[in-house]
Amino acid sequence: MRGLKKQRRIQIIMAATAALALSAGLIGYAMRDGINFFRPPSEVVANPPPETEVFRIGGMVEEGSLVRDAGETITFVVTDGGASIPVTYTGILPDLFGEGEGMVGTGRLVDGTFVATEILARHDETYMPAEVTEALEAGGYRGDYNSRPDS
């Protein structure tokens, strides 16, 4: 009788372990495209990711670099003070997006140009995401990124 209880307990533990491993595997598989790492421009220049990798880049939009084409395509340069990366984006930009403003973009690096699929800007005039602030300070950017240039 005792051997049967022990065997049953081992079977339950093995089944629970297999279910846990399967659950962890399915969660990892589901999240593989949903995890986008943040990289400042200095890191992207120093260690360019493969063209297939989707990641987030953030920094300040360089003054004088914003160019709007005839269509919805916008090009600009994002910097953290240490390096600059050209960015192209097709779509409608957030209202608070502009030169000298902080931004975070999601996309891929293609031939040295970041092709963005999503652009985020500050949600008000005084906020800057912590990861962008840290990247700017690490890159040596000394501009006033907590207020708008026209205020």
Rank of each mutant, 00 (worst) to 15 (best):
R2K: 15
R2L: 09
Q7M: 12
R8W: 04
R8V: 14
R9Y: 04
I12N: 07
I12A: 08
I12H: 06
I12D: 07
A16R: 09
A19P: 00
A21Y: 02
A24D: 08
L26I: 06
L26E: 03
Y29D: 15
Y29S: 14
D33F: 00
I35M: 12
N36W: 01
F37P: 03
F38P: 10
P41F: 14
A46V: 07
N47H: 12
P49Y: 00
P50T: 07
E51N: 13
E51D: 12
T52M: 13
T52Q: 09
T52C: 05
E53Y: 14
V54I: 05
F55R: 02
R56D: 10
I57Y: 00
G59A: 13
G59M: 13
L66K: 01
G71M: 15
G71R: 13
I74W: 02
I74G: 07
T75Q: 14
D80F: 05
G81N: 04
G81W: 06
S84R: 01
P86I: 12
V87T: 01
T88I: 01
T88L: 03
Y89P: 02
L96E: 07
L96W: 02
L96K: 13
G98W: 14
E99V: 06
V104F: 12
V104L: 10
G105D: 05
G105P: 01
T106H: 04
R108C: 00
L109K: 02
L109C: 02
V110H: 03
D111Q: 14
T113D: 02
V115A: 03
V115W: 13
T117E: 08
I119C: 05
I119N: 01
L120G: 12
A121W: 05
E125S: 15
E125V: 08
T126Y: 15
P129A: 13
P129M: 07
A130H: 11
A130M: 11
E134Q: 12
A135Y: 04
E137W: 04
A138H: 10
G139I: 04
G140C: 13
G140M: 15
D144M: 11
N146W: 15
